[in-house]
């Protein structure tokens, strides 16, 4: 195991923070100390990894996802629900707490608080209306989110399938090139064999002509 001092020297060497004399001394040790040399190779491998990494393009995304009107304003309310839902809920709570009565007359619209004559049935009806309105808002938002999510999934699958198709195309092209290369090599081989056979036949004929006739 390498000593701490040697390890530190190795890291200083890697960072280029070493006096020339110390550098030379350490470089000599690389040749004699195999453990030190192996550690140095591993360090260089990591350094090369840091240098060689090719940045991958960032997929499309919403840079404003989850961003509120001003930074730091997070609170306990989930950001994704938005201000409209928050305002609706707070209004509903306030209306209940202050026992508000909303009435529409021919003169216009009026809101009264602490109405003693507020009927529980009316109150229940109003709460129910508010609840329905709130639920409808939430449903709309959920539907929009679901639609967005489905669209994103579709895009992801399309990209993946397109990549797969391209990959297969590349493989087929490579296969065709290899086949064509093998075929021309085979043809050359066949030509060579044919030439050899012709040479052999010629040589045999010449031999026959030189042989004495058989009685």
């Amino acid at each position: 195991m390498l000593s701490d001092a040697l390890r530190d020297q190795l890291l200083n060497y890697l960072d280029g923070n070493m006096a020339p004399a110390d550098r030379a001394r350490l470089e000599q040790q690389f040749e004699t100390n195999s453990e030190l040399n192996a550690a140095w190779q591993a360090l260089r491998e990591m350094q090369a990894a840091g240098r060689d990494w090719e940045d991958v393009a960032v997929p499309q995304w919403s840079r404003l996802a989850g961003v509120t009107a001003r930074p730091g304003n997070t609170g306990i309310w989930p950001v994704s629900l938005g201000w409209l839902s928050l305002a609706t809920s707070i209004t509903a709570i306030l209306l209940v707490l202050f026992r508000a009565e909303i009435s529409v007359t021919e003169q216009g619209f009026s809101v009264a608080f602490h109405e003693s004559g507020l009927n529980p049935t009316t109150l229940e009806q109003r709460l129910s209306d508010l609840s329905v309105a709130h639920e409808s808002t939430l449903n709309q938002r959920m539907a929009a989110l679901e639609k967005k999510s489905l669209e994103m999934n579709r895009q992801l699958l399309t990209a993946a399938l397109s990549y797969s198709r391209d990959e297969r195309r590349r493989e087929m092209t490579a296969l065709a090139t290899n086949w064509s290369r093998a075929r021309s090599s085979d043809l050359m081989l066949v030509d060579g064999i044919r030439d050899n056979q012709l040479d052999d036949r010629l040589a045999l004929r010449q031999l026959y002509t030189r042989l004495p006739p058989i009685n």
Binding site: W61, A65, G66, P71, G72
Partner: peptide, 18 residues
């Protein structure tokens, strides 16, 4: 990686006043 990146930027945004 995408989830983590979004988390990181959200954390940065929330802590920007600091």
């Amino acid at each position: 990686a995408m989830d983590l990146m979004q988390e990181i930027f959200l954390a940065v945004y929330r802590n920007l006043p600091n």
